[in-house]
Computed example of a mutant assay.
Amino acid sequence: MTIIDIARLSGVSKSTVSRVLSGAGNVSQEARDKVMAAVQESGFRRNDLARSLRSGRTGMIGLLIPDIANPFWADVARGAQDAADAEDISLLIFNSDWDPERERRHLQALTQSRVDAAIVNPVRDGLDDFLRFQIPLVLIGSSAERFPQLPSVGSDISQGVSIGLDRIVAAGLGMPALLVGDAERTARERFVAAVRAVGEAEGWPLDEMRLEDGQYTVEGGRAAMERLLKAGPPRVVFAANDLMALGALQAIRAAGLRCPEEVALLGFDGIPAAEVSTPALTTVGKPSREIGRQAFKLLNRKVTGQAEAPRLSLPCTLIERETLPRIDHPRAVGTG
């Protein structure tokens, strides 16, 4: 089925069919109705490759995230894909595994695939390394803050940490021990800095704060928690992501300790698995799916030549479950 066939079925010229399918405005409503009726009847689909060669666009964008196995990043991808589908745009998803060399190869593959643009959670440090690929970019996540020259979307980490710590303080638990990720990650720096800012206001002895580094995984959280327990169980632990918190919960239970009665626990991310743990994990939820949606919207504006927005920092929410003690008369929890 071709445009010529649609013209014959609808009784209009080939050029009229072309104008209707391209969305041009100089077509009568009667002719438009005839063409669309013929399209629906015949099941005709436009030749997107030919259309892309004329417009210079392929109708495809790339998404490069660090860990598709982490439910947080999977949900970010879902948000981006939902937004892309609504615009009839295809999404190609790549996983960097936090590896700068793999990230470089994937960006090169996206360029060779002639994607119109890409959404990237950056692992690499150099802005020039991204710009040399010469495709429009929108960055996501805490790492994007290293590149203020580019539009980006992420969670408001300071606000999220603040509401989490307000909840810990309201329960009378005092200064938490921290489970954090790789010391080279921007997310770790932002998390620890936000905790210290609140701690100073609370008058905590920050030089005595217990902190364990680990991988942002269940296994990493379990190993870090085991190290904390060897030096004596902390009263409360704040983990920098939910996977680490779930691993910490495993270590707490394996040590024969009760949560939250003996060791309380707070996570950060809001992944679905946190809801079905035993006990269910109290956590600070990031707007993962909305991050993906907003990143696509920013990218689409950039591709179509609209004004770029600065970094969008989306608020987090406290998700009350079972790993922090209940509060009968809570103080107001701040919103940052």
Rank of each mutant, 00 (worst) to 15 (best):
M1N: 06
T2C: 13
I4G: 12
L9T: 02
S18N: 15
V20D: 10
V27K: 06
S28K: 02
D33G: 01
K34I: 02
M36V: 01
A37W: 01
A38Y: 04
A38L: 08
S42V: 09
S42F: 09
R46T: 12
L49D: 03
R51N: 10
G56M: 14
G62C: 10
A69K: 08
N70I: 00
P71K: 04
F72T: 01
F72K: 03
W73A: 03
A74V: 02
D75I: 02
R78P: 01
R78A: 13
Q81M: 05
D82E: 15
D88K: 14
L91R: 14
L91C: 07
D99W: 00
D116S: 11
I119Y: 12
I119A: 13
N121H: 14
V123Y: 05
R124L: 10
D125V: 00
D128I: 02
V138F: 08
V138A: 11
L139K: 11
G141R: 13
L150N: 09
V153T: 03
S155G: 10
S155N: 09
D156M: 11
Q159I: 06
G160K: 11
L173D: 12
M175F: 05
V180F: 00
G181R: 02
F191Q: 08
G199Q: 09
G199K: 06
E200K: 11
E200L: 14
A201S: 13
W204D: 05
G214I: 10
T217G: 08
G220M: 15
G221S: 12
L229A: 11
R235C: 10
F238Y: 15
N241A: 00
L243Q: 13
M244N: 09
G247P: 08
G247D: 11
A248Q: 07
C259G: 13
P260I: 05
D269Q: 09
I271C: 10
A274F: 04
A274R: 06
E275C: 04
V276W: 07
I291R: 06
R293H: 14
R301C: 05
G305L: 15
A309M: 09
L314Q: 04
L318A: 07
R321H: 13
P325Y: 07
G334E: 12
T335K: 13
